[in-house]
């Protein structure tokens, strides 16, 4: 446990003394802020129109602002998460510091967990920015807070998957650009897998739909914790961390 924290702490140090963390925070704040502005803008416009039309429609802040906002945040995540993970191992390999880790009395799994945990905490720091956006919704409206909590849990789990997969990709190369590009492509692919639904309901389409990473997020942002979705995310995190550990081990054999 101490080893995991040692590795994690050093990674966080690197994120926050280098510009990476601050640049990511700035980008995220800008994009999530703009999305919040857009979606609440639509909401305000729609509510005005529904009042003017004489037959007011039921307006719901949770359904019409918070749920779409979470999906948009998840999409921003697809772009930013590869930027968080791409350096994790590629940088160590390029700098030769991997030799320090590999010759220290620490298990490969501890290295992997430490790195992944630091990436998750970095991602959490991004999500904290979102909390500022949401605080305005709470300030001027009365949304239900429970779907907000489950929504955060959802994007956290979804981010955890992509972070685990991105960490794995980072072990396969010395080049951060490659790690970032491959990570981004994979994230994009996992997102658009369910775009086949219009093709009908064949088993392939169903499987692809199930594998698609964002399709499991909807229930969370509606306030539902579905075990099917939790299991999907947890197993993907497990898969990513497992592959990372094996890949790290194999470096010794292939070196």
């Amino acid at each position: 446990m101490r080893n995991i924290w040692t590795v994690c702490r050093r990674e966080l140090y690197s994120y926050f003394v280098s510009p990476i963390a601050w640049v990511l925070l700035a980008i995220f704040a800008l994009l999530s802020g703009y999305f919040t502005y857009l979606i609440t803008g639509y909401f305000v416009q729609a509510s005005l129109q529904s009042q003017m039309s004489g037959q007011p429609m039921p307006m719901n802040l949770n359904e019409q602002v918070i749920t779409p906002l979470f999906s948009n945040i998840a999409v921003i995540g697809l772009f930013l998460i590869p930027l968080i993970t791409m350096r994790l191992f590629a940088e160590e390999k390029r700098q030769g510091t991997i030799e320090l880790l590999a010759t220290s009395p620490i298990h490969d799994l501890e290295i992997v967990m430490g790195k992944w945990l630091s990436a998750v905490l970095m991602y959490c720091a991004l999500l904290l920015v979102l909390l500022i956006d949401y605080s305005f919704l709470f300030l001027y409206g009365q949304p239900d807070w429970k779907p907000v909590v489950t929504g955060f849990l959802g994007v956290l789990l979804e981010g955890g998957c992509l972070l685990a997969l991105g960490t794995f990709i980072s072990t396969t190369t010395k080049n951060q650009i490659i790690a970032g590009a491959v990570g981004f492509s994979l994230a994009l692919l996992l997102w658009i897998l369910n775009w086949t639904t219009s093709f009908g309901n064949s088993p392939t389409v169903q499987v692809l739909g199930y594998l698609s990473i964002l399709s499991h997020l909807d229930s969370f942002s509606r306030g539902v914790i579905d075990s099917k979705d939790v299991i999907y995310y947890l197993s993907l995190i497990f898969l990513g961390l497992f592959l990372t550990t094996r890949s790290l081990e194999s470096l010794r054999w292939r070196a």
Binding site: Y13, S14, V17, L101, S104
Partner: peptide, 25 residues
Amino acid sequence: YLPESPPLYPEMSVADYLMFVARLK
């Protein structure tokens, strides 16, 4: 072990780096 190119993290300060290695070891 001191590898041929010292395994240093350029973004860390000397003291922080050594304390990290101490924890690691």
